[in-house]
Design a protein around this nucleic acid. Structure first.
Lengths: 200, 200, 200, 200
DNA sequence: CATGAATGAGCCTTCATTCAT
DNA sequence: TATGAATGAAGGCTCATTCAT
């Protein structure tokens, strides 16, 4: 009987979890496509659940958006750091970072928050922000490139912020459009541009 | 008496015009500060008129926003072209463009629309877009720089789009923050960066 | 023209005021009949306006209820004090108070708040409470009756609170029902009870 | 094996009963403290069961509230009649009744329904009401006191209703507050008031 | 039988837009 | 023509109730 109960609980928990995954999935798609103005009912419909089900886990629309955005940022952050880790010299790291960010931006434009001060981020999320992480990462890479002489001198923070501008979803989309939505080609152009601009 | 009536009409017309100027002024300030979510009543209050007066000239909020945004873009466009005209060689033109755009962005962040495809722009405005103008201008400048040898080779459209990224209000604000909100200093950094990246 | 404007304003203001009176009237009737659970839409319908009109003056349902309740209490308070003033000796004052309260209670049961601590009263109303006023008034009357020997000794506050119990809308309705909803007859019984006492 | 099954069934039935007792206990506590607005989920949580378990026995929230309220009233009724039975003369009976009711009211304010016509009571409960019982009891006591000369003349029903007013939970709480929440002291005041009367 | 996640009608509230004055 | 009160559709959120497990 204890086993049965445990099995029931396990099964139930799995269903619940799948439901929440569908909610997050639906919310991510819709928010990514059309920003935070999507209606809760629409998210619910796309997820195949009732609105109440969403509110059970996310007490307000803002928190749902924050959760979705945070997840997207976490994921992106993870990919960025991993890509940077796998590359060996600073310019290679830059390349890898750019490529990853360009690929991420395609499907998550409205979610990836590269503003330094997301004023509307709920305070209780202790949101470190993708911006800060990426800025740090870039500054670190640039500084190390400067030490080994492969990147030209200049304030690493400022140079990093300039690179960041070329990684915003908005920029990504603009550039992609110029090469017929070929994200990799767009990234390539930026990489070459930065190489010229940053390299000694 | 005919004269009186005419004078009255003229006077009235002048009042009307002044009213509209105040509406546009108020709308510009508020939309620039806080984006399109400002309430119509607040715009009316700031302009010192009733909401009905706004609706007489602008049948919908979107059209008011579009008008304000369009005006800001026209103004910016004018300044940009003028600045470019006054400079003599391509790199100088670039510098001038950057400086102007940085100064404009400070007070009009939410109005300057540098997206190539303002999806939410009302179709009936035939919005040429500041983006297109600026893109063209930059491409033109870059191409001419390439012809005379002062700017490195590469697709001018792509290079212009990359420059554009460094001119988005968002980027302007990020960079400004890094130099204590000194817009000119931020512009200077970007100019130097582009000089290194673009110059032969 | 100044006159015209002034006349327009005056007329308009009169209409607005009449609208608000109808809102208050509707709210009073409904809240008095069925308590605070009445729907805003129903209040609006009964007042012949849209919900937005109510919200223009009363930013929340609670504030509307508070306003209505406060108005009813103010009115009742006024009548009570006036009645007490017009009577000459303490027992007459008591009679007058009872009669007034009984008449008021018939149509305002759910609004007259005789609880000492209306926990749900919005703090910003500085709600002195009808309870406190009435308690004070009764205690004052009783004390003066005791001084002149027409009312038996005992803690005036406690005696006043006991009288208060006989004046609660709930009690009023119960007693009225026993004499076929004749409020005056019910008040009469209470007056005789208080005058003569129960025990021999 | 039949025995086992029987034992199992018995055991199960016992569990069911204990569950319902916990539900009633929880509901009583919460409804008594905070009225009918308590959420079903909270009742379930306090009872240590799921909401479904409550709904199995009480098809609606109203019925649960009615059951709890009815139980409280039954209990109170029982105590009142017992107390009255143990006293010997009418004034003593009155005293006993008051004391009991005051003690009951402390923990069950929101449950003890002394309204003659609980309009919101579900019709299918055939709710006799504590009010009717208590009214009858008081009238009976008063009438017998009048017959033996220890209580002054007057309509027993009306006099009983007046006494009833002094026994409402609301009154009980008000008076108790005046003597620092000492319920027995408050009851004492009322007893003396009823015994001696207010006027000289 | 117990559980508690899911449901969705219903409520409060907001704000772009209209229109009587 | 200007006004701003009025409108009411729309959206966020709650919670009694149901039902799959």
């Amino acid at each position: 009987m204890a086993e049965e109960a445990a099995a029931g609980a396990r099964r139930e928990r799995r269903d619940v979890q799948r439901n929440m995954e569908r909610v997050l999935q639906a919310a991510q798609e819709l928010f990514a496509e059309r920003g935070p103005d999507v209606k809760m009912e629409e998210v619910a419909r796309r997820a195949g659940v009732g609105v109440g089900t969403i509110y059970r886990r996310f007490p307000s629309k803002d928190l749902l958006f924050a959760a979705v955005s945070e997840a997207a940022c976490q994921d992106t952050r993870h990919c960025l750091f991993q890509a940077a880790d796998h590359a060996h010299d600073p310019l290679e790291k830059l390349r890898a970072i750019i490529l990853v960010q360009y690929r991420q931006s395609v499907r998550q434009a409205a979610l990836i928050d590269l503003r330094p001060d997301p004023a509307d981020a709920p305070a209780d999320l202790d949101h470190p922000g993708l911006y800060a992480s990426l800025h740090d990462l870039l500054a670190h890479v640039i500084a190390s490139g400067q030490r080994q002489g492969s990147i030209r001198s200049g304030d690493p923070l400022m140079l990093a912020a300039i690179c960041l501008a070329l990684l915003s979803p908005h920029t990504v989309q603009n550039l992609s459009r110029l090469v017929d939505d070929d994200v990799d080609a767009a990234a390539d152009h930026v990489i070459r541009f930065l190489s010229a601009g940053l390299a000694v």
